[in-house]
Design a protein around this nucleic acid. Structure first.
Lengths: 300, 300
DNA sequence: TGAAAATTGGAAATCGTGTTCGAAAGCGGT
DNA sequence: ACCGCTTTCGAACACGATTTCCAATTTTCA
């Protein structure tokens, strides 16, 4: 609220200053947004086209309003990945004198939705859900959360560390998984690559998977992901890799998985399902942690 | 959060300084409260008796936590009807270096009760975790759960139903998404197929994506998934589909997505990230719900 | 391809904020 | 009522935060 009161007394000078820079939105027929909702409306209208960095700022403001309200300009800038001056420029484009002034908008908003907005009614809401689609969505969310919750409970950290070791020491990592596991492997492969870890995603495009794994050497490692029913091509591919003496680490959902016997180390991740639709949340989280562990080990 | 981290590094010196003033609570057997809840507990315990001005401060803190979090010391002092220095003294009595440090408590609390800040819970929980890998895993789980939690809060059920409508009435569904969105689209495509809904996953294998979307007709629909940064091929592909008069529904993470303007209907799903690794849990859950909705509509 | 314009990064300068400190006022005990 | 201790006040100071400005870079348009 202080920000608002302060700005009101200086708005004329502010706008004059901004206009002098020739970038004020007033020139575009916009008036300075006076509330957080107005700002959101302007941002979402899509009529304003920002260059790269300023767009980055807009996206961050959109997604993390409370961080903007509570932080200093330096903190916000770092989190958004831009320079502090960029934030100031952004604020000025909207007709504000500077960041502090602009921040008042966010402070007001956060304060406004407090403490009335504290109603933690997740459970009650779900219980009396009239809409079938919402009911289903809540069921899926529940299944995902249950899967995630189970990770904390019984997680074999020793196996996990062995897996990190094996993968980190590998020459090349082959990522294998089909059907339901494929989304997991694509994300793992993408993330590994983004982190600079060379890897091959065995996707079986062109039915070349067997030939790909035929190239595996004894200094390579296989990261396999497989869920029941185990009727996909994955066990076959892993068996080939096993014959070729590669290290094999597996994420699967039971000891009955045919991959368990082939693996040097394996982790059990059980996903909950709702009405036949199975979550992938836990597998993704564990997989990401694996990637992170490998990167950390390699750069150490 | 910055306040908290800052304090941890200086706490020893802080407490020494406070003790020298002879008013530290440590002398009374109290330890410095580390969270807002702990502070409330101490205040409400009634075991500490403050002189007039300090009591005034305590009452104000109790009743207006958000003002304390958002304001400057001068503003808080004025609202509470005391001098700024009184606030500093109050903070020091509790073992903090000063008001800024103390204020961090309130900022954390406010941010924690704000949707996108909830992953912090997992992070702090993990702070006591000795194993770095476990810490990271917990962070990811926290991010996933925060993402899922946000679905309940603000979900545009109307948009969702329009999306189901459009997809259910489509002749053929094209599923488009690249990079981080690709795992989501692969799972959507797989599930659609398993449920008997004909669809094309535009995966750009062989760089044929443009040719694929060139076949889209006006009775088809596109289900696009895209996250920031929006620098992939997805917008180009969707633009082609748009020109060919197909219905377009989108799952994305902000209004700045270039897909929004091309879409008939879109849903905002914001994923939390942890150390740069972003969750997909919420997008997957929403996507699955979409598939289920389409199947239900078609078989009805 | 080259020139002009727009955008961005970064450091220097400015401004505001929090903290400290000494003096004054209040309070309780003798 | 006096003395000593505690609490409060308010101004000066120092620090950190914000803003400004200019050079470097990127983009745009001819």
């Amino acid at each position: 609220m202080s920000g608002a009161s302060k700005s009101s007394g200086r708005s004329i000078a502010d706008e004059a200053a901004a206009r002098k820079r020739g970038r004020s939105l007033a020139a575009l027929g916009y008036t300075k947004p006076r509330t957080y909702e107005e700002l959101r409306a302007v941002l979402s209208s899509g009529t304003v086209h920002f260059p790269k960095r300023l767009r980055q700022v807009a996206i961050f403001l959109w997604q993390h309003p409370s961080d903007v309200a509570l932080g200093t300009i330096a903190q916000v800038a770092e989190q958004a990945g831009v320079q502090p001056s960029t934030l100031v420029r952004f604020a000025q484009i909207f007709g504000y004198a500077g960041f502090s002034d602009f921040q008042g908008l966010f402070k007001d908003h956060v304060k406004g939705s407090w403490p009335e907005g504290r109603a933690r009614d997740g459970q009650e809401q779900a219980a009396a859900e009239p809409n079938a689609n919402l009911h289903f969505l809540n069921g899926l969310v529940g299944a995902s959360q249950a899967s995630l919750g189970r990770i904390d409970k019984d997680f074999d950290i020793a196996s996990f560390e062995r897996m990190v070791d094996l993968l980190a020491n590998a020459d090349l990592i082959y990522v294998i998984g089909s059907k339901r596991a494929f989304p997991v492997t694509t994300y793992l492969s993408l993330t590994l690559s983004q982190q600079g870890v060379r890897n091959v995603l065995v996707d079986n495009v062109g039915s070349t998977a067997l030939d790909q794994v035929g190239c595996i050497g004894s200094r390579d490692a296989v990261l396999a992901v497989s869920f029941s029913p185990y009727n996909s091509i994955t066990p076959d591919l892993v068996a080939v890799a096993h014959e070729r003496k590669a290290r094999i680490v597996t994420i699967t959902d039971s000891t009955f998985s045919p991959l368990v016997q082939l693996s040097d180390t394996w982790l059990e991740v059980v996903e909950q399902d709702f009405a036949g639709f199975r979550s992938l949340a836990a597998s993704l989280a564990v997989g990401m942690a694996l990637v992170h562990g490998v990167v950390a080990r390699r750069t150490a």
